[in-house]
């Protein structure tokens, strides 16, 4: 397990460790199973082509889950994820590298809570941001 990140040690503007994923058809079908989203656009190439796509595309909600994992690996075990939001601006195809990143935009205390806000996003293999978003987490204090 990664070392705990503490509120005192984080700075606005700093990036958090990134998370690289390369979802394959198997992972998309497992996502369908886990989420109950069985839309054929995620596994049936003929269906995807009839919809004007190059082929099956990665579920938006899977990318949201990856962003959640990005935050989880950063705040665990003592921090908590309060909010994960993202927009699906670009489609991603399976078997391509997707890199999930985050940057701290704000830190403040609210009562006893140490709150950190972040800009988060997923970029495709060309470095294009397909899934921009924002997040709110709480971190433990060194005190």
């Amino acid at each position: 397990m990664a070392d705990q990140v503490y509120f005192e040690d984080v700075e606005v503007g700093a990036e958090i460790p990134s998370l690289v994923k390369e979802p394959d058809s198997l992972q998309l079908v497992q996502w369908a199973a886990g989420s109950g989203d069985f839309y054929q656009i995620h596994y049936d190439p003929a269906f995807a082509k009839r919809n004007g796509l190059e082929g099956p595309i990665v579920h938006g909600a899977l990318k949201h889950a990856f962003l959640g994992e990005l935050l989880h690996q950063w705040v665990a075990p003592g921090g908590r994820i309060k909010r994960v939001a993202c927009s699906y601006r670009g489609m991603d195809l399976p078997n391509r590298r997707l890199t999930h990143k985050g940057k701290i935009t704000k830190k403040y205390q609210e009562g006893a809570r140490n709150i950190v806000e972040l800009e988060i996003w997923a970029e495709d293999a060309n470095g294009k941001t397909t899934t921009p978003g924002s997040a709110v987490v709480t971190l433990p204090s060194r005190a």
């Binding site: 198997l26 079908v29 369908a32 199973a33 054929q40 049936d44 190439p45």
Partner: peptide
């Protein structure tokens, strides 16, 4: 349908790609 096969994969946990990945 291909959807039904994916439902089946989900219901039994058999994710062998021969049932949903045409290229495979």
């Amino acid at each position: 349908t291909t959807t039904q096969l994916v439902h089946w994969a989900a219901a039994v946990g058999d994710f062998y790609p021969v049932h949903y990945d045409k290229d495979f």
